[in-house]
Amino acid sequence: MGAWGPGLFSDDTACDVRDEYREMLEDGVEDDEATQRMLDSYAGALDDADEATSVWLALAVTQSKLGRLDPTVRDRAITAIDSGADLARWSDNPRLAAKRRDVLEKARAQLTGPQPQRKKVRRPSRHVTDLQPGDVLSYRASNSNLALLRVARIDDERHSVAPVLVALDLTGTHVPNQPELDSLADKPETPFRLDGSPIPAWASTSWRVAVFERIDYDTAGFQRAGHTIARRDDPAFHTRTYTSWQLLSRDLERNLTDASAMPNP
């Protein structure tokens, strides 16, 4: 199980349960059916002592917040809390164990207390980008240096249709002509260490970028700079970095103004 902290949803399984259950409701699945689908889907996890607690708690608390708490799910979650088995997983760290105890006490109070009215669950708005594969965007930093980012592909997910961008290996102040633009390679990433040292410039050179707070690329300082040829691996290109246009512009500003990222004169 991937737990990274004592919070109720600082856990991969708990997050998956919450998200999958909510998505069913967004799709119009009735309450009882959604609950049964979740129990069927996580039957294997429910047979595991550690994961079962995460499943019951995540499902019960999510249902409670939406005014849809199933009595059986509630009872199983409370039994899991009262058994003390969950706290045993944190016994080697008293500080985290104390925090987890508080989390469980609050969850128990929520599940046993008055429940909110049943809430309507609607699908969130789904932004669809107007960018296309091959489009090139530019971003000009405060020192006038440019970053050029090409659209490798368009990623169609449940909550957005967003571009996957790759930085082109160019440092300068002007957009090159078309032949040079088509010949540019993708910028390589700069390795970094997980030892607390500062993250270097260009630690990430590809991103899936979504609209957040209605800020799209044009309002975040990006401009269309042209179009370039596709690369052979673009249809299957994968990035590990998901971000927003605001955060990407901030990161590019740092990359372009960091002296260590600039080529030697």
Rank of each mutant, 00 (worst) to 15 (best):
R224H: 13
A3R: 13
A167P: 05
D182M: 06
R89V: 06
D102N: 13
K65G: 14
H159C: 07
L168R: 04
D27W: 10
M38N: 00
M1V: 07
S249V: 05
S249P: 00
D234E: 14
D31T: 09
S54L: 10
E23T: 11
A45R: 15
R37V: 10
R208S: 10
S206D: 15
V211H: 14
A167Q: 10
D11Y: 09
T112W: 02
L165C: 04
I78P: 14
R100T: 02
A3T: 05
L168H: 03
R232E: 15
V164W: 01
G113R: 03
A109Q: 10
G113L: 08
W56M: 08
V55M: 07
I229F: 06
V29D: 08
V17Q: 01
R74C: 11
D135K: 08
Y242E: 15
A43I: 03
F212C: 08
E253K: 06
R193P: 00
P176I: 06
P235N: 10
A162F: 05
Q178F: 00
G67A: 03
R101V: 02
M24K: 10
S83Y: 00
T241H: 14
R250T: 15
D251H: 14
A259I: 14
I81M: 03
E26Q: 15
H227W: 12
W245F: 13
Q178D: 12
A98S: 13
R101I: 00
W90A: 01
D86L: 05
M24P: 00
P176A: 07
G7W: 03
